[in-house]
Design a protein around this nucleic acid. Structure first.
Lengths: 189, 189
DNA sequence: GTCTATACCTTGATAGAC
DNA sequence: GTCTATCAAGGTATAGAC
């Protein structure tokens, strides 16, 4: 992974995947942008499936590392939630990428089974973490909402995924408005 | 439009677009399923762009027809909102399609400019209608929420688009939970 | 690790017969 | 309106030299 070329391929592929979708980026895009030939990419990632899979696994790993870090787990609910929101806005400010889950969910029935399985795991992990954060935050009275924490979590995750997509059509400010509304609805200010 | 073949092509293409995305359905898919040759499809829709465009325009037309119908405009806020929600659930129950806006928003940077423009118009119209419904509903005290109607509208639309996508990963019941949470947050029951 | 060269497939699209 | 036949372009992937 420290191999510079391999990492560059992975970074660029991730970016293209979230900007154009799985079926609309090619080895040619990658090779041209990186100034190498497509055979070189196949050396590092034998198949497109292997490449796609590593993109997902790396994201899972990042998410897991942050959320399981001892120093992060003891942060106030708001700080943890802010971090979560920021991870979406990083995409927005990087060429209007949509989130990985949203991108692969719309391509779901066209991607290899191994990738379906991996993105399923990621979405499950995100959902569990968010639900727990909301639940403990409500118990600690750091925020408030009605209904079940899991339902509210799903509602927020859907909202964030969708708002990155709508931002492409209606402008980036719409994402920020959606986020503002989320904070309002949680009484988290 | 009454032409049976043309309509069948449009229906099937719409379905494939919302299930697989713009770049993952082909004239071959259409011709095989309809039992005709790809040249016949090109007769009705000279280019894929023309086909994609008509799909969007038809959806815009449907939306406009319903929302501008005099009998619908005087319905209680809840009834109009219920109709809106049902239009998403129709997709969910038809082969787990995502909504047209969500599908084309993730493919946005890979579709022809004419389609970008059309889907932009649709999303704008949906946003305006939803914001007005929420605003007048709140004034009539048929529902309640904090913040601006436009922001809440965007929040709900994003949520609905996203939940159809997440439903593919986490199961259809998650969409219904998101919807339930939306009603709870609006005090609309 | 990266290259050249190439195989093989799918794609959107067109020409012209019927 | 639909067909057969065909095309050029772009896609993933592999073999083998360097």
């Amino acid at each position: 992974m420290r191999g510079s070329t391999k990492r560059k391929i992975l970074d660029l592929a991730e970016s293209l995947l979230q900007r154009r979708g799985y079926n609309a980026f090619s080895y040619h895009h990658l090779s041209q942008e990186l100034g190498i030939k497509n055979a070189a990419i196949h050396y590092h990632f034998p198949t497109k499936e292997a490449l796609g899979l590593q993109i997902i696994e790396r994201t899972r790993d990042r998410f897991s590392k942050w959320t399981n870090h001892p120093e992060h787990r003891i942060l106030p609910t708001k700080d943890q939630f802010d971090w979560f929101i920021k991870s979406y806005q990083y995409n927005l400010n990087s060429d209007n990428r949509v989130c990985l889950i949203g991108s692969l969910a719309t391509d779901y029935y066209t991607i290899p089974v191994s990738m379906q399985s991996a993105i399923h795991k990621l979405s499950y992990e995100v959902q569990i973490w968010t639900a727990r954060l909301l639940d403990s935050g409500r118990q600690a009275e750091e925020l408030s909402f009605k209904g079940r924490a899991q339902d509210k979590a799903l509602n927020i995750i859907s909202s964030l995924a969708g708002s990155l997509q709508l931002a492409r059509l209606l402008g980036n400010e719409y994402h920020y408005r959606v986020v503002k509304q989320i904070y309002i609805d949680l009484n988290l200010t």
